[in-house]
Design a protein around this nucleic acid. Structure first.
Lengths: 174, 174
DNA sequence: CAACATGCGGAGAGCCTCTCCACATGATAC
DNA sequence: GTATCATGTGGAGAGGCTCTCCGCATGTTG
């Protein structure tokens, strides 16, 4: 990749982070390009869809969550680890509604690897929980993530979100 | 209100219902106006915001759901009635995603009583289910509705939505 | 059947997304 | 250093959207 291309890409992500933080995930792509000091064409070359740009913006957050999954897997019981991780995930999704929507819309078969990373990180915790009998067989990581995202999107308060998540976790045991 | 104004308003709601069912709640208002056979100005005079139009469209559906709740309460066991009603609610929310979002965003204290009506209708089913021990005490109607709305918003397929709902229902029993 | 209040349509302003291609600019070979 | 070429660039432009505005049409009323 040419060095100028790399530089423009980085500028775009920085500008997008700022503008999205301010205006939400539906912010104008034109404005992001302008703030990055590049043409609209350049933005669209690097990020063919709005989602691909958002995913890049949220990559840092997603990687934090992945790291947390590994920590928890080593330091807690299968049940606690999964619960704690889902709570952290829920928190992130609520803080940044755009994050939830972005992960949600990312096609599960896509190569946009941050969403994939998140699923992989979650998969470890879920597998352990299933071995320990805390989650019944047949439940997929994807189920659990989507349920959590849904709760983040629909809950009207943090307390409610916590409560709904705990209901969902009970349901996982089956 | 002049009779032609009334007629146009009705046409708009009908057209909006059709177009939104097909294209989702972000459908073009232009197209709705066109399909209703009126000018854009007429649409905006009757419905100053997109939200106001959506609300009108969904009122009918919400009333249908309320009626369904009463039917089910009389014809089915407490458990079946609640499950069937939630499935119907889920279906509606998924059919027009806008319904879910509209109910979700309706401020709880507002006089937009569609959300209130829905909650009242659901409350009867939940109370019966709690008496029958199918739902544990402490769970509120609002919890169940929000959980279902969340599932509708986040699920990536009808099959997944069904599955997530059944997980949630298991969780309700505690 | 005036005369008036009300409602109407659709052109147009100002956004937006996304495409396209002549031109600029790193990278590479000599 | 420079010639060559693949790669990347900017911004004009097409087409669509939302929303406003106002001259004109049409119910309504006395």
């Amino acid at each position: 990749m040419r060095v100028d291309a790399r530089r423009n890409r980085d500028r775009l992500v920085a500008a997008a982070t700022a503008v999205i933080a301010e205006q939400g995930p539906a912010a104008s792509l034109n404005e992001i390009a302008q703030q990055a000091g590049v043409g609209a064409g350049t933005l669209y070359r690097h990020f063919p869809t709005r989602e691909s740009l958002l995913l890049e913006v949220f990559t840092t957050r997603i990687e934090t969550l992945c790291a947390r999954a590994h920590e928890l897997a080593e330091s807690r019981s299968p049940s606690d680890a999964l619960t704690a991780w889902l709570e952290a995930f829920l928190q992130h999704c609520r803080t940044d509604r755009g994050l939830a929507e972005t992960i949600m819309k990312a096609p599960s078969g896509s190569d946009l690897n941050c969403a994939v990373k998140l699923r992989t990180a979650g998969a470890g915790l879920v597998a352990r929980a299933q071995e320990a009998g805390v989650v019944r067989a047949g439940v997929e990581v994807e189920d659990i993530l989507q349920l959590t995202i849904g709760i983040a999107l629909a809950a009207d308060s943090p307390a409610r979100a916590e409560r709904l998540l705990s209901i969902a976790i009970v349901g996982l045991r089956g």
